[in-house]
Design a protein around this nucleic acid. Structure first.
Lengths: 137, 137
DNA sequence: CTTGAAGCTATAGTTGCTAGAGACATTAGG
DNA sequence: CCTAATGTCTCTAGCAACTATAGCTTCAAG
């Protein structure tokens, strides 16, 4: 049996975050000590590891909840799990594409040299006038 | 003189968002009509255009506030503006790198085929066991 | 048995908006 | 000039995913 602090150290998830996940229904409320403190078992530890990894990959709380309820029955088809992963990967690819456009624009703005005073600062000019941009964003 | 709705249409920023920017100190409180409605002039319009563009490039409200106060005096050096842009570009590059690692990992997980049931679903297995990962995240 | 760390609950703050309620202002048409 | 429709006002609350604080209780070591 682990206390919430021990679980926190072992999973790398902060104590308040673990309580938050419990509140959000990602983990079953664990048993309690005589003095009302949470006591976790191996299953709880594994569940939190799953959540941590899924969060690290950028999955939302809702997606994780779906995956967990899905994983309950080992006999069920897991198409939905693949679908969630694919959807999320696509989402990330979009994000990357958008950030790359922003990065290109910022780099261009950043590298344009000016006289060094606000009056003709290229950074400020570029921000004021969208038509100076090379790409959409 | 423009009403807030006209400004919204011309800048593409929604009405409540404009009021929010005012509250956040990004725009000076405009004059009011006899009936207490906001009335904007060209300067207000231009300021909102600046904000919109900066937000589209991902700059935070705080950064934008800094840039605006900086732009007040045309004689001042604008090193700080370049610095903010450079900082933000670096931040975006980091984000991109991280997302690319995630994307690679997700694609790998997504493409690994399994028997199609939850019991041996590679997506769920990969999420449960971090050691199956090929890269850090 | 004492003490200091760790845990408890409940509430509020973070960022950048967005949505709603209920009241008042403006404007176009008749 | 009156009315109806639309626009605007303030204030409050909600979103995601935590994080921080306050004031209290429990646990474990010495």
């Amino acid at each position: 049996m682990y206390s919430i602090g021990q679980i926190a150290r072992r999973t790398g998830i902060k104590v308040p975050t673990i309580r938050y996940y419990e509140q959000m229904g990602l983990i079953d409320p664990p048993g309690r000590s005589a003095g009302n403190q949470r006591r976790y078992d191996e299953a709880g530890l594994e569940r939190l590891g799953f959540i941590r990894h899924a969060r690290a990959l950028g999955l939302s709380i809702d997606m994780i909840r779906d995956l967990i309820s899905l994983a309950q029955d080992k006999e069920m088809p897991c198409d939905r799990a693949h679908e969630i992963a694919a959807q999320h990967a696509a989402h990330i690819r979009q994000k990357i594409a958008r950030l790359q456009r922003l990065e290109a624009e910022l780099t261009r703005i950043e590298n344009s040299h000016d006289s060094g005073t606000v009056g003709d600062c290229h950074v400020l000019a570029a921000l004021t006038d969208h038509s100076l941009c090379m790409s959409e964003h």
